[in-house]
Amino acid sequence: MYAFTYHKPTSARQAATLLAKKEDAKLLAGGHTLLPTMKQRLASPSALVDLGACADLKGITVKGRNIVIGAMTTHAEVADSPEVQSAIPALAYLAGHIGDPHVRHRGTIGGSVANNDPAADYPAALLALGATVVTNKRKLTAEDFFTGLYETALEEGEIITKVSFPIASKAGYAKFRNPASRYAMVGVFVAKRGSEIRVAVTGAGEGGVFRWPEAEAALKARFAPKSLDGLKHTAKGINGDIHADAEYRAHLIGVMAKQAVAQATGKA
């Protein structure tokens, strides 16, 4: 790791001031992507602004028809939250299957969303549930927020403060895990809210998380796993690597989508 100066503000506002003052500063959330990257010397920020003491970035609240999760809330806290478990059980399930128990004690929703790893779980939930990413400057829909591989709409000095999830009437998440890393080879999150149905796919797309309109249309007719019978996702634009080629991943999208719908409809 290259040397850096370390700063530990106690509020998001202080963090933003520090971030603006220090050139090449990076925010440290749970650190489970940033620290390994720095250890490999693939990142060398001159300063780290640790958000760990910002109490205003933590916690889970129910606000009307939304679940609002502070950016520094850990995966374990989301997975174990009675509020999340009762409002959107699929979201609690997703958080409880990120990495391993030790990683879930440190990793945060804000860190995961800001990193936008193409194989991360949360982006699929945000996109399918129609979540809003709230920053210290503005509010962004998930669609506007995730812009590409490890790319987001976040600007210089912008800090995610919370993520607001509208409560879906039905939701499910299924992922085919890489047996070693537990990252999603393919993960599919389906959500039904009123008449709107969304199917979001992570782990598969060359450009990161994306929606599958054909599956959404098929599920609109009837929200059941059977509605996806015979539906195949194209292998075009799908990732291929040593873990799985594009055709294999494309096939998995259909399989995981069915499992996610089965979970959402209580038939899993």
Partner: peptide, 23 residues
């Protein structure tokens, strides 16, 4: 990945190779 470095931090298991001492 391997977990040989797991310790309890405020009562919860964490990987101490991926945690800064200052934090």
């Amino acid at each position: 990945q391997c977990g040989a470095c797991v310790v309890h931090l405020d009562g919860k298991a964490v990987k101490s190779c991926t945690t800064l001492a200052v934090a």
